[in-house]
Amino acid sequence: MKKIGIIAMRELGSFFNTWMGYVIVAAALIIDGILFNAYAVTSEPKLSAEVLADFFYFASGLSMVAGIFLAMRLLAEEKQNGTIVLFYTSPVTERQIVYGKFLSAVIFSLVLHAASLYMPALIMVHGKISVGHVAAGYICLSLLGATTIAFTLLASCLAPNQLVAAVGGAFLTVFFLTLWLLSGVVDAPFKDLFGWLSIHNSHFTPFSNGIISLKDVVFYFGMIFFFLECSVRALESRRCQG
C-alpha cells in the first residue's frame, strides 16, 4: 500500500508540474461552464432538480473525456521515455504500479470535479436542491471517470505511445457507452447483458436523479477492478517480451 502511495504522489506531482494537468482542468471547466449555460440554464422554466440532472448529464461526458486524457500517458509515457525501467528494476510489483498510477489519475479527476462544484452551488443559491442530490451526482461522475481511467490505463499498458493509448481508451469507452444501443437490436439474453454492461445509460440515471444505487456502485467498482487487473496482467506479460 505504501508503494502505491509513493507512485501515486509522484504521478500526481507530474500532473501539477507540467502544463498537462492545468490544460485538462481549464478545458474541462470552460466546456462544462459553456454547456451549463447553454443547456442546463435555459429560459424555459425548469425545476432546480432538473437543471442539476442536466448538469450531471453534460458533466458525465466531460468526466469520461478527461479520464481518457488523464490516463493515456500513465504508462505509455513511461515506455516512451524509458522510465518504466525504473519500476521494472525496483522492488515494486506490477499491481502496485497499476494501482498507484490509477490512484493518481482518480485523485486528479476528483480535483477536477471539485473545481466544478460552483455550478451546483449556483443552482443551490438560486433554487432548491438537496445536498444529497449533489453528492449522488458527484459520486457517479467520479465512478464514471474512474471507469474511463481504468479503460485507458489498460490501453496505456498495451500501447507504444500516448496517442495510441488515447485512441484505445476512447474506443473502449465508446464501446461500453453504446452497448445500450446494441441491446436494442438483439434478443435475450444478450439484450439484458449488453444493457447491463453499458456504463452510462441505466447505471447513471439513478445517480443523476439523486439516488445512490448500491448495485450500480458495485457495477462500476467491478468494471474498474476487472480492467485494472487486466492492466496488471498486461504489465506482467511484458517481462516475457522485454
Binding site: K3, I6, R10, N81, G82, L86, S90, P91
Partner: peptide, 25 residues
C-alpha cells in the same frame, strides 16, 4: 540498474527524484 538511457523524469528536480527512487527501493 542503469539502463543505456537513464530513467529520469524530466519535470522533476535531482533531489526529489532521488528521494522518490530511494522510497521506491
Amino acid at each position: 540498474y542503469l539502463p543505456d538511457t537513464p530513467p529520469l523524469y524530466d519535470e522533476m528536480r535531482v533531489i526529489p527524484y532521488l528521494r522518490y527512487v530511494a522510497k521506491l527501493k
